[in-house]
Amino acid sequence: MIKVSNLKKRFDQTEVLKNINFEVNDGEVVVIIGPSGSGKSTLLRCLNFLEQPDFGTIQVGEVTVDATRVKRAEINRLRTQTSMVFQHYNLFKNKTALENVTHALIVTQKMDKNEADQIGRDLLNQVGMVQKADSYPVSLSGGQQQRVGIARALAVKPHAILFDEPTSSLDPEWVGEVLRVISGIANKRKTMLIVTHEMGFARQVADKVVFMADGVIVEQGTPEEIFDHPKNERTKQFLQEYTKQFAEDIKVDSHASSEKRDLLST
């Protein structure tokens, strides 16, 4: 399980995380939503110390660290408990798709290369990318790169996978395939923490939804509680803004298609 207590983080003068407390049980999928700049990504990046928190304790799996007196070896151990899927994929540019998945296994777990390749191919197969095993990232589409990124995160058999806005920089046409892959993993009861702006996806995949704003957790609960019966004013406001935007997007879309129809009929 993941347990975060009294987590605080500031960048210069701005307090990005103000005393965050929350838990994720094993096999649970937790989705974090909230406006930009609310600290969602920073929270996620504190869990593997890509950002060093200023205060608080973080427990992931069997490793617990106290931010105020943490040693490098502890940070390294904490990092082996999770893996991350990035907004910009961050595939290793000098490695093929397969090597991206197997490299950590060979380097950190000293796994035999053939064995690692076998695992790598299985995982690439799971995300529908095995036919591109020998391609380099530069020749893959965004959606394909992200699917390899997910396979890479699965390969190290982490206690939990952290998804940092995994579809935010994808062209709309690739969003669906990546979300489908993530849903597939969620169904296997893998512990996951997902920061996303895809509300429909959040509702469908989450066991628990956390709403963050201004560095605090405003409200958390089941998808029904948060999306259908939000208690807090700020949650209501955020969801309203979101639905309004969503409705406008649809209007623009249908407007465009009716224009197209007009063009076709003349």
Binding site: R79, T82, S83, F86, N90, F92, A104, V107, T108, V156
Partner: peptide, 8 residues
């Protein structure tokens, strides 16, 4: 960051 995130 990606390398570190998978435990390197």
């Amino acid at each position: 960051e990606a390398a570190i995130s998978v435990g390197m």
